[in-house]
Amino acid sequence: MKAKQEGQIQGLLLNRHSPIITNAVFADDTLLFGRASRHEASKLKEIISSYTEATGQRVNFLKSSIYFSKKTPVVLRQLNSLVFNFWWGRKDKEKKLQLISWKDATNRKDKGGMGFKDFKLFNLASSPFLQKAKLLGLEKPSERKKYVEGRHQHNVGDGRDTLIWYDPWVPHVQDFKVQRPSHCPLDINHGFDLIDHDNLQWKNELVVHYLKKRFGAYSVRSGYRFLLDKANQSIIHSPSNSLSIPQHIWKKLWNLPLQPKIKVFVWKALLNALPVKGNLAHRGIPINSTCPICNEETKSIEHIMFWCSHARATWFSSCCNYKPDAIGFNSFTQWWIAITQAFSIDDDSLCLIAIVCWIIRKQRNMAVF
Rank of each mutant, 00 (worst) to 15 (best):
Q5N: 11
Q5V: 13
Q8I: 14
Q8Y: 08
Q8S: 04
I9H: 04
R35Y: 10
S42I: 13
S42F: 08
K43A: 00
I48N: 04
Y51S: 05
K63E: 14
K63M: 05
K70Y: 13
K71C: 04
R77F: 09
Q78R: 12
Q78H: 07
Q78I: 11
L79K: 08
N80I: 09
F84L: 10
F84H: 15
W87K: 09
R90N: 15
E94N: 05
K95E: 10
Q98S: 02
Q98E: 13
L99K: 05
I100T: 12
S101W: 13
D104V: 13
D110V: 10
K111R: 14
G113C: 05
M114N: 03
G115K: 15
K117C: 01
F119Q: 07
F119D: 05
L121P: 07
N123Y: 13
A125S: 07
A125P: 05
S126F: 15
L136V: 09
S142P: 01
S142R: 15
S142M: 13
H152L: 02
G159C: 06
R160A: 02
T162M: 04
L163G: 02
W165H: 03
W165L: 02
Y166I: 12
W169M: 02
H172S: 06
V173N: 03
Q174L: 02
R180D: 02
C184H: 09
C184G: 04
P185L: 11
P185D: 08
N189Y: 07
L194S: 01
D198P: 00
L200H: 12
W202Q: 02
K203D: 05
K203Q: 13
E205K: 11
V207M: 09
G216I: 09
G223I: 14
R225A: 03
K230S: 10
I235F: 03
H237R: 07
P239Q: 03
P239R: 11
N241R: 00
I245L: 07
H248I: 06
W250Y: 12
K251M: 12
K252F: 00
L253G: 08
W254H: 02
N255G: 01
L256H: 09
L256T: 13
I262A: 05
F265K: 07
V266I: 15
A269M: 12
L270M: 14
L271E: 03
A273T: 10
A273S: 06
P275N: 09
V276G: 05
G278F: 09
N279I: 14
R283L: 11
I287N: 04
S289E: 08
C291M: 07
E296F: 12
I301H: 09
I304C: 01
M305P: 00
W307H: 05
C308A: 03
C308L: 10
R312H: 11
T314V: 15
S318E: 08
C320E: 10
N321Q: 12
Y322T: 06
Y322S: 05
N330F: 01
S331A: 04
W336T: 14
I337W: 13
F343Q: 12
S344Y: 14
I345M: 00
I355C: 05
C357N: 06
W358C: 04
K362G: 00
Q363H: 13
A367G: 01
